[in-house]
Design a protein around this nucleic acid. Structure first.
Lengths: 335, 335
DNA sequence: GTGAAAGCGCTAACAG
DNA sequence: CTGTTAGCGCTTTCAC
């Protein structure tokens, strides 16, 4: 009785098979009021037997509001994965569907955003976009946008991020309290958030009295970037006793280099990461890291963007990151 | 002149503004023949000024075929990221759009597949699905399906995978040629492909004359799984001189444990991974690994599923994996 | 509870 | 080259 290669089964087919009107089937499929429990069960059963699945496109087309949220994210960013997962949940709780659109080396951000636009999403959540002001501007003109995990100041866009500057501050404080003075920051280049972390590092260091040119080393987002940067640091002589990496991946590379160089973490050198993507919590060396709460950020982004749809003001939420102390930091070696 | 909060601009609006018929605008937007270059330019300009973006849903709804491919993937699998990226490319080359639907701990596979169904995708590509035969069966009845990176034998589904058994064989051969005899396989439990790799390992070992119970240790997909498994191996005494891990992440964990135990890779113990996801190539310790060619697999999957749409037979493609020798394998320690 | 009718934004098949 | 006419599959009035 199963309709082969279904999906093509339409509401009319079900109505005919059940001997009722299309409207009734529609009501039943939506779970809307207006049908007896008896009819409801029968229609549902028949629809199921026929392999009927409502056509999302037709449905959304007909509805005045699409109740659709577009999300762009980077396929390579573990933390984006965490955020996407939480956004699915948060959106579902609000009765919204989600269209995800990936960004990758071979698929540009504009490409990803175009998809969101063409699908007639009511609003977009952009995860760590690298758009410049102009590009962002053209998007913001078209639909409500919340930018996550990146700073910015377009008044028409909402922003949800955690305070990168404060986050790095937590890391610096932690290390200073452990007695470290020779602290290096391996940065994220031009990645979203990198600037804030860099200046947050400088600020925290000078606040702690290490004003004289705290060391910032060019790094990047990947493990290899962290490893290379740490290579350079060690080769330069005068090794630090602590390193704050741009993110967890980067920190992993840093740790790797340190170990390869015959030193140990955290005995010789302490290392702090950033993000606390699940990747990190699964690491063998439990990484001390600055945690951005994906769940909270997703909630904030979704709630914020929904309020914008209703004409509310763009949110400007700066979450307070949390330092998660695990096993890669220790008191300064007494050497 | 920009329509604020556009996206709501419709084809009719553009037609009116340009003083032409809807049909003409449609023709121009699709780049279809039937309009003078002059008109084309003018309409395009006006559309752009108005911030008009064609409604994908309405478009797909009207067209008999949606030219849409659904892809389900795991947010946490780096190799899936590689595949998704390549599928976007391969689909675009064939004139198809892609709907991606993520699987995560809090978002089930059925959920992901439902999305694909509701969007009226013409076919689905499932990356490493964990469905059992029954579940897969109900999906296969509804639309053409190609399963990637997992073995199976539903004759109605297409399969694109690389020969896991042969891949592990390559790893075993490589290690045996380096003089290793004490080789351990840390497996992937019930993950897609794990069974094949396990039995491939046993087969290759016995082919090489190590028939007497080659050691297979329960592992998993993550770094932590590899690390824990390796812990157990080392604690058990009689350490192997070589380890073949289920995947690259797992291998990373293995390496980590080895180093923490005061041994070195590859001097004391050689380690081979599996997948060659970009993650791996970015590792500081260049991982010797069995490469599954994401680009090739994506091409095969897309071409295969398109042919199924045209009534072709389901593809059954078993790619030949390639051993990529990097820095984590060496000749057996002469100890 | 039910059925008829209109229309979401677009494309396709025609006549002009 | 242009305009008209039909729908795609669904939801949403509105009478019955």
């Amino acid at each position: 009785m199963v309709e082969k290669r279904g999906g093509r089964t339409t509401l009319v087919d079900v109505a005919q098979a059940a001997g009722v009107s299309r409207a009734l089937v529609s009501i039943v499929m939506r779970g809307a009021p207006g049908a007896s429990d008896e009819t409801r069960d029968r229609v549902l059963r028949i629809a199921d037997e026929m392999g009927y699945v409502p056509d999302q496109r037709a449905r959304k087309l007909r509805q005045s509001s699409s109740r659709l949220l577009g999300v762009t994210f980077e396929l390579r960013e573990p933390f984006h994965g965490d955020l996407v997962e939480e956004i699915y949940r948060a959106a579902a709780e609000a009765g919204y569907d989600v269209v995800i659109s990936a960004v990758a080396p071979s698929r540009s951000e504009s490409n990803a955003v175009d998809t969101v636009l063409r699908e007639r999403c009511e609003a977009a959540i952009l995860l760590g976009p690298r758009f410049d002001d102009i590009e962002l501007s053209t998007i913001v003109e078209r639909l409500p946008v919340v930018v996550v995990a990146r700073a910015g100041d377009d008044p028409r866009a909402g922003y949800v991020r955690s305070d990168d500057s404060a986050g790095i501050g937590l890391a610096v404080d932690h290390l200073v309290e452990l007695g470290h003075t020779a602290i290096v920051h391996i940065d994220g280049g031009d990645a979203p958030g990198a600037h804030e972390r860099r200046s947050g590092f400088r600020a925290a260091m000078s606040r702690r009295g290490f004003g004289a040119g705290p060391r910032v080393v060019p790094g990047g987002l990947g493990q290899i970037d962290g490893a290379r940067a740490m290579d350079a640091v060690l080769e330069g002589g005068d090794p630090p006793t602590a390193v704050i990496a741009f993110n967890d991946d980067c920190a992993t590379g840093v740790i790797d280099t340190i170990i390869r160089a015959g030193k140990t973490v955290p005995e010789d050198i302490s290392v702090v990461g950033y993000d606390d993507a699940r990747l990190a919590s699964g690491l063998r060396v439990p990484l001390t890291t600055v945690s951005q709460d994906a769940r909270q950020m997703a909630d904030d982004a979704v709630i914020g963007v929904l309020s914008m749809i209703d004409g509310g003001d763009p949110p400007a939420i700066v979450g307070r990151p949390r330092l998660v102390i695990r096993g890669t930091t220790a008191t300064r070696p007494t050497a």
